[in-house]
Design a protein around this nucleic acid. Structure first.
Lengths: 189, 189
DNA sequence: GAACATACTTGACCTAGATCAAGAAATCAG
DNA sequence: CTGATTTCTTGATCTAGGTCAAGTATGTTC
């Protein structure tokens, strides 16, 4: 079973038939380090599963850039708002390393319901799951210190910390790289 | 047309038949000032449209409470994660004033697809819309100062500021009431 | 309309985290 | 291997916003 099928089965509880059908719409695609999966202002017309590598979601402001999230192996990536509402993407999505993704085209994505009867339910759960992830994140900003947010991310996404420049991690946590450095030193005692 | 029908039409583009059908599942309910619409740990088995009044979504921590959002007239309210995934609610939802809502029971909600063929699409758009709202909010914490976040909320939800204790507004913005007080004074010049 | 509670403002002070600057490590290109 | 970039750490300093405490409004209740 491919990683994608594995993921689809674990998270969406598809039966064998649906699993193969859904997975068959996803085509492999390679995004080389530094290349863009998506650029701000374009339409996001695809959804991808990350087979290997990493993508950084960020936006350019006048004087700096803000990293919204770093997507790693085994997760999906897209500009959901752009994909669903067909409006220009807010985010740049750029490869931090050579990245292999399995991509489904929006056209196929929008037709999944024709092939998999329970797709609408599955899609709803998928988007609702994205929602709760963000809800947790908002809550972290309302209730936690920089150090607590750092620890939370470190526990849940340890892989990022070994492979991604600190400045990006800091930005997605809403702090500076220096602050992360100091948190680390402090935690060494 | 009721406010609920008005809302459903504006946001979901239902035709007249669907509109009436959907709206008929919502029953009026009154939550008196101070009473709870939902309590942390319970299952959220309903979704409501706020006809009048205000509800505060918050959670109790050991040493303080954190207000996640204040829901006002013309918006929907629920613990979405609890409603969709049938897990215990994270949030308390309490009336800040006598509040009239139109409520649809989860059982009816889950069956809307049987009556309105395009419900799955509509529901997806609804949840995706909730997602983008939170995405904007995360972005505000990553990119804005306290004053900028205050201004953003003030422009978009002016009604809250005249009717809700400052401490709750401050909490949902991730700052203290004193900070809001100082921002206000500063803006008077 | 007292008496009491709740909300808001203001000042004095403090601190988490930012900024700036300089080195030290690590990574990369040839 | 070597010089050039990029990243990471550390120190010195600064500042946005927090904390604490007091005073002033603004409600409620009887």
């Amino acid at each position: 079973m491919t990683d994608l099928e594995q993921y689809l089965q674990t998270y969406f509880d598809f039966d064998q038939g649906d699993l193969v059908k859904v997975a068959s719409f996803f085509k492999p695609e390679i995004v080389k380090k530094g290349e863009y999966y998506l650029k701000t202002g374009k339409l996001c017309q695809k959804l991808s599963f990350i087979q290997s590598g990493m993508l950084r979601i960020y936006v350019d402001l006048e004087d700096r850039e803000v990293t919204q999230w770093i997507c790693t192996q085994g997760y999906f990536v897209a500009d959901l708002a752009s994909l669903v509402f067909e409006k220009p993407a807010r985010w740049n999505i750029q490869a931090l390393a050579d990245t292999t993704v399995y991509t489904i085209d929006k056209r196929d994505y929008d037709r999944l319901g024709e092939y998999i009867p329970r797709w609408p339910v599955t899609e709803k759960l998928f988007i609702a799951h994205c929602f709760t992830t963000l809800e947790d994140r908002v809550f972290s900003f309302l209730s936690m210190t920089a150090e607590q947010r750092y620890n939370l991310l470190f526990e849940s996404h340890r892989d990022i910390f070994t492979q991604v420049p600190l400045q990006y991690i800091a930005s997605m946590l809403g702090m500076t790289p220096e602050t992360i450095s100091r948190i680390r030193r402090k935690q060494l005692n």
